[in-house]
Design a protein around this nucleic acid. Structure first.
Lengths: 93, 93
DNA sequence: GGGGTATTTAGAAAAAAATCTAAATATCCC
DNA sequence: GGGATATTTAGATTTTTTTCTAAATACCCC
């Protein structure tokens, strides 16, 4: 159940910002890092969390690793929130 | 910007479960606590986080404090996720 | 008012997460 | 192969979060 993992991954501002950066297209770890005031190691840590949550995936090319958004998991989150908003749990009248 | 707060609040499994309990209707702090293996103080802590994130609100009655879901903030989260999925940031063709 | 129940607050302890530095891999390209 | 660049891993430290116990509030009802 990677569900909890996804929520955890989304809870950090840096990681959300990374996702927003990737919205515009794939970026290398270095490119991503250049947007933040932290070491590459820390960025790598955040990328690992996002990867484990299935929110991003990587593709290797030349000497770089490019990361891109994986939106499929976001559907699940949307569904959960939607059901929370939706009201009663089983059915409606 | 309570946005980050909301994500943080949603990142904890206990708090998500509390929200799910409240989906069925208002509950007192004690009622909520009876669903978990933790002290009332800890439940109170989680309720405070949820309250600060505007995910729940309380109404006092008799000797009890009843909590209920506030779904308005969830819209914002949905929107954010939706835009992340949606692709380009400003508009569509 | 005063005992009783419900909940919160304060403060400390334990657990988890974020960050750094230094070193390790991995891959490119000459 | 070997130096150069990109990224990750390991381990330690700092910060944040979760949890507990004990005490404090708050409110009810006799």
């Amino acid at each position: 159940m990677a569900f909890a993992e996804t929520f955890k991954a989304l809870s950090d501002p840096v990681r959300r910002q990374i996702l927003e950066l990737l919205k515009k297209g794939p970026l290398s770890a270095g490119d991503i890092g250049s947007h933040f005031e932290m070491t590459g190691a820390t960025i790598s840590y955040h990328l690992k969390i996002l990867k484990q949550a299935d929110l991003i995936f990587e593709s290797r090319e030349k000497n770089f690793i490019y990361y891109q958004l994986n939106t499929t998991v976001l559907e699940e989150i949307m569904l959960w929130i939607s059901e929370l908003k939706g009201g009663n749990s089983d059915a409606e009248s």
